[in-house]
Amino acid sequence: GIPATNLSRVAGLEKQLAIELKVKQGAENMIQTYSNGSTKDRKLLLTAQQMLQDSKTKIDIIRMQLRRALQ
């Protein structure tokens, strides 16, 4: 079985993952909103794209940590 310490770690990672998935969803929504907007929305679009990139990276890292914890 999986050690108890790993189980609480997994629960924490799953919570983090859920949050990051919401951030990713929000960033994707912002990108959709701003991509057909005016030029003043360009900065917001770039910010949203950066957020999305960061979020995807975090999600990958969390998933990797989850896999390790579940081994």
Results as ranks from 00 to 15, higher is better:
residue 2 I to A: 12
residue 13 L to C: 03
residue 33 T to E: 15
residue 60 D to E: 13
residue 68 R to P: 01
residue 43 K to Q: 11
residue 22 K to Q: 08
residue 17 L to I: 02
residue 14 E to Y: 15
residue 9 R to T: 12
residue 43 K to M: 09
residue 16 Q to D: 04
residue 56 K to L: 15
residue 7 L to Q: 08
residue 51 M to D: 03
residue 1 G to S: 11
residue 50 Q to C: 12
residue 9 R to Q: 10
residue 70 L to T: 04
residue 50 Q to R: 15
residue 71 Q to R: 09
residue 53 Q to P: 00
residue 53 Q to G: 03
residue 26 G to W: 13
residue 37 G to D: 10
residue 33 T to A: 14
residue 66 L to N: 00
residue 64 M to H: 10
residue 31 I to E: 01
residue 70 L to P: 02
residue 5 T to M: 10
residue 27 A to E: 00
residue 57 T to D: 11
residue 69 A to Q: 03
residue 15 K to I: 08
residue 4 A to E: 13
residue 9 R to W: 13
residue 3 P to K: 06
residue 10 V to W: 02
residue 56 K to S: 07
residue 44 L to D: 04
residue 57 T to M: 14
residue 57 T to I: 14
residue 29 N to W: 13
residue 67 R to W: 08
residue 57 T to K: 10
residue 25 Q to R: 09
residue 35 S to D: 07
residue 33 T to N: 11
residue 42 R to P: 13
residue 64 M to D: 12
residue 34 Y to C: 06
residue 23 V to D: 01
residue 41 D to P: 02
residue 3 P to Y: 03
residue 7 L to P: 12
residue 45 L to F: 06
residue 31 I to T: 01
residue 54 D to S: 08
residue 15 K to H: 07
residue 39 T to S: 10
residue 62 I to N: 00
residue 40 K to H: 12
residue 13 L to Y: 03
residue 64 M to W: 10
residue 33 T to L: 15
residue 21 L to Q: 04
residue 57 T to C: 14
residue 15 K to D: 05
residue 32 Q to K: 15
residue 51 M to Y: 03
residue 63 R to V: 08
residue 10 V to E: 01
residue 52 L to G: 01
residue 58 K to H: 03
residue 46 L to G: 03
residue 38 S to K: 09
residue 68 R to G: 05
residue 65 Q to M: 12
residue 61 I to P: 00
residue 14 E to T: 13
residue 34 Y to N: 02
residue 55 S to W: 01
residue 36 N to H: 11
residue 2 I to P: 08
residue 48 A to H: 03
residue 45 L to Q: 02
residue 23 V to Q: 06
residue 53 Q to E: 12
residue 21 L to R: 03
residue 59 I to C: 02
residue 22 K to R: 10
residue 26 G to R: 15
residue 25 Q to V: 06
residue 17 L to E: 00
residue 20 E to D: 01
residue 36 N to F: 07
residue 58 K to A: 05
residue 8 S to T: 09
residue 49 Q to A: 04
residue 24 K to N: 02
residue 10 V to Y: 05
residue 30 M to R: 03
residue 2 I to V: 12
residue 42 R to Q: 13
residue 68 R to W: 12
residue 16 Q to I: 08
residue 9 R to L: 14
residue 43 K to Y: 07
residue 5 T to A: 11
residue 25 Q to A: 10
residue 29 N to A: 13
residue 15 K to Q: 08
residue 45 L to H: 02
residue 6 N to G: 10
residue 20 E to H: 07
residue 62 I to G: 00
residue 24 K to H: 06
residue 56 K to Y: 04
residue 20 E to G: 01
residue 47 T to K: 14
residue 2 I to H: 12
residue 42 R to L: 13
residue 59 I to E: 01
residue 24 K to Q: 06
residue 14 E to W: 15
residue 29 N to P: 00
residue 59 I to H: 00
residue 38 S to P: 08
residue 53 Q to H: 10
residue 47 T to W: 13
residue 71 Q to M: 11
residue 42 R to K: 10
residue 39 T to K: 09
residue 50 Q to T: 06
residue 40 K to M: 09
residue 27 A to C: 13
residue 16 Q to A: 12
residue 10 V to C: 12
residue 36 N to Y: 07
residue 71 Q to L: 10
residue 62 I to S: 00
residue 20 E to C: 14
residue 63 R to L: 12
residue 56 K to H: 04
residue 19 I to N: 08
residue 7 L to R: 14
residue 1 G to K: 13
residue 23 V to N: 14
residue 19 I to G: 04
residue 45 L to R: 02
residue 12 G to W: 15
residue 4 A to R: 07
residue 16 Q to L: 11
residue 66 L to A: 00
residue 55 S to Y: 01
residue 16 Q to R: 10
residue 4 A to M: 04
residue 64 M to L: 11
residue 14 E to P: 01
residue 65 Q to I: 05
residue 1 G to E: 11
residue 23 V to W: 03
residue 8 S to E: 14
residue 32 Q to M: 09
residue 65 Q to K: 09
residue 43 K to G: 09
residue 38 S to I: 11
residue 42 R to C: 15
residue 62 I to V: 02
residue 8 S to C: 15
residue 65 Q to V: 03
residue 55 S to R: 01
residue 40 K to I: 10
residue 67 R to L: 08
residue 6 N to W: 03
residue 50 Q to N: 06
residue 71 Q to I: 13
residue 24 K to L: 14
residue 3 P to V: 07
residue 49 Q to L: 14
residue 32 Q to E: 12
residue 56 K to W: 04
residue 62 I to F: 02
residue 28 E to N: 03
residue 64 M to P: 13
residue 16 Q to W: 06
residue 51 M to I: 11
residue 49 Q to C: 15
residue 54 D to K: 11
residue 41 D to Y: 05
residue 7 L to E: 13
residue 64 M to K: 11
residue 7 L to N: 09
residue 33 T to W: 13
residue 43 K to N: 11
residue 16 Q to S: 05
residue 15 K to T: 04
residue 27 A to S: 02
residue 45 L to S: 01
residue 57 T to Y: 09
residue 42 R to M: 13
residue 34 Y to A: 06
residue 40 K to Q: 12
residue 24 K to P: 00
residue 3 P to G: 10
residue 56 K to R: 07
residue 68 R to I: 14
residue 51 M to K: 04
residue 40 K to C: 14
residue 63 R to N: 06
residue 20 E to Q: 14
residue 56 K to G: 02
residue 61 I to E: 10
residue 14 E to F: 15
residue 2 I to W: 14
residue 50 Q to L: 09
residue 42 R to I: 14
residue 27 A to M: 06
residue 51 M to W: 04
residue 1 G to H: 12
residue 55 S to H: 01
residue 67 R to M: 07
residue 68 R to Q: 12
